[in-house]
């Protein structure tokens, strides 16, 4: 972060980072997201849960306008980050995505060295004045990604040569290297084994101190473990949104209840 808004501790807990108003998404003829309204807090981990095809990933991809890359996708409604509409005509999605980083379902390191993978974002956004600054950013990001100790001796090795869990942490390091304010994670652990999953979850918890994290997950246990807030999506609707403990212990909606107890999903 360049200069995080410092508004005192009391405010910090209630700062709304992202707010969505009447968001609708159409994929061609399919109505994928129906009228979603949600406020996502800063420096919190928010989990999106729900059965497959419920639109949680689609909504996540709206937040950094990744859906722009799909021709047939149409988004209406407003999504505001820090009060600014990201679908405003003046917004350049390229600039937005530097501010809203994303980690994908499958680890997708570029076929480049570990160093170049992490340095890619800072390079294209011009975040480093010189080589030594870049080195610093790379080291800092890899440390934030909790992978520095494992790769510091082989920064020139290809990123594709790492194990699955390491690759995903590398991708997280790559995402935080552009100093985003929001970090979107689309089922970041679904391709990982339990041990790697545990490491990544631990990392997500640490990231909370600096970023607003939004994570889409299939696993309710994971949502319960890492998130403070949880949103439940069903058939394109945001059914329920609230504190994670409340959602899991005392859901208000019957559909949420059914999903939590395994009756739908």
């Amino acid at each position: 972060m360049y200069d995080a808004p410092q508004l005192g501790n009391a405010m910090d807990q209630t700062t709304t980072k992202i707010s969505a108003r009447n968001v609708q998404v159409h994929y061609g003829d399919t109505h994928a997201i129906k009228d979603v309204n949600v406020d996502i807090d800063a420096k919190t981990v928010t989990a999106f849960i729900g059965p497959s095809g419920c639109g949680k990933s689609t909504f996540l991809r709206c937040i950094n306008r990744m859906n722009d890359t799909i021709d047939i996708c149409r988004v209406t409604g407003d999504i505001l980050i820090d009060g600014e509409d990201i679908y405003d005509k003046r917004v350049d999605p390229v600039q937005l995505r530097a501010k809203v980083g994303m980690v994908f379902q499958k680890p997708n390191p570029f076929p480049k060295s570990i160093y170049d993978n992490v340095a890619y974002g800072p390079r294209i956004h011009g975040l480093a004045k010189n080589k030594s600054e870049l080195d610093e950013i790379v080291e800092k990001s890899l440390r934030r990604g909790a992978i520095w100790d494992e790769v510091k001796d082989r920064l020139d090795a290809p990123g594709t040569g790492l194990s699955g869990g390491q690759q995903q942490r590398l991708c997280i390091a790559r995402a935080v290297a552009t100093e985003p304010e929001v970090l979107l994670m689309d089922e970041p652990c679904s391709a990982l084994d339990p041990i790697a999953t545990a490491q990544v979850e631990e990392l997500i918890d640490e990231l909370r101190s600096q970023f607003s994290v939004v994570i889409v997950t299939h696993s309710m246990q994971q949502a319960a473990r890492v998130s403070q807030k949880t949103a439940f999506f069903h058939l394109g609707n945001l059914v329920e949104f609230g504190d994670t403990t409340q959602i899991f212990t005392n859901p208000q909606d019957e559909r949420t209840q059914n999903y939590i107890t395994g009756r739908i999903g």
């Binding site: 360049y2 200069d3 209630t14 980050i81 009060g83 600014e84 990201i86 917004v91 390229v94 304010e181």
Partner: peptide, 17 residues
């Protein structure tokens, strides 16, 4: 919504972009 003005607004395109 709180009245927060971030240092970098996404509504203005910077030179580099």
């Amino acid at each position: 919504m709180t009245d927060v003005t971030p240092t970098t607004s996404i509504l203005t395109v910077d030179d580099r972009t």
